[in-house]
């Protein structure tokens, strides 16, 4: 069900922390620089494991990506007042936990537009505040929370490693294909794509 990103119709399978998979269009996924760096040119063999993030979060993130597929290329942060009605609804319907999860996932996937809008949204909470008010807003972490944060960071690093390994593994397979004569390579890729689309329609 996954394939190289040569066609705009390509769908990729994404695996969440629950082990669930769902598909995302190549166009939406290409907004992720992390994806671009790892899979864009080589494709992915099997689901892409973004297993540090739950299904709801990933779906929310890719909902945003799907929506902004046809928007002009990202050209730096936009003022909150310039956001479209859809964008505002997208942010407003999230509770804080989901918002934090979305920022973290967007940051990991390196989706510039979404991360930037999220950051601007947080910055708005800090504007016009004095020190004491800022302390209240940002709820300074306790020592335990700092420790927990470090563990999360470590876990994320491990997840990133896992994704990188997956990319490397796929790359190895692609390299094997590249050693074949051109005609054979075209046929092999075609067969591979056909198999994937067949399995996609069977699901």
């Amino acid at each position: 069900m996954t394939s190289p990103a040569s066609s705009s119709e390509v769908k990729y399978l994404i695996e969440s922390s629950e082990g669930n998979t769902f598909d995302v269009s190549g166009a939406a996924l290409r907004q992720s620089n992390t994806f671009n760096a790892m899979f864009l040119n080589i494709g992915a063999d099997g689901p892409i494991p973004f297993t540090d993030y739950n299904e709801a979060t990933l779906k929310k993130v890719f909902e945003y990506c799907e929506h902004s597929v046809n928007e002009e290329n990202y050209s730096g942060p936009k003022h909150q007042d310039d956001l479209s009605k859809w964008d505002l609804n997208f942010f407003n319907e999230m509770d804080q936990k989901m918002f934090i999860d979305v920022i973290n996932a967007s940051n990991f996937l390196d989706i510039e537009r979404l991360t930037s809008y999220c950051c601007e949204r947080i910055a708005r909470m800090l504007r016009g505040k004095n020190t004491q008010e800022m302390i209240k807003v940002i709820t300074l972490p306790t020592a335990e929370e700092l420790e927990a944060k470090q563990k999360v960071e470590e876990k994320k690093a491990a997840a990133a490693k896992k994704v990188a390994e997956k990319a490397a593994e796929t790359a190895e397979k692609t390299e094997t294909l590249e050693e074949l004569p051109v005609q054979q390579l075209v046929q092999t890729t075609r067969n591979k794509l056909t198999r994937k689309y067949l399995s996609f329609s069977n699901e």
Binding site: P77, I100, I103, N107, T115, C118, C119, R127, P141, L146
Partner: peptide
């Protein structure tokens, strides 16, 4: 959303990006 936000639960590069949205006086 709540009027509070646990900023330090975010990765440092995100916190930096948040701060880049603030005027130097606010910084």
């Amino acid at each position: 959303m709540k009027p509070t936000f646990p900023l330090f639960r975010l990765p440092e590069n995100v916190i930096v990006q948040v701060l880049q949205n603030l005027h130097s006086s606010q910084l």
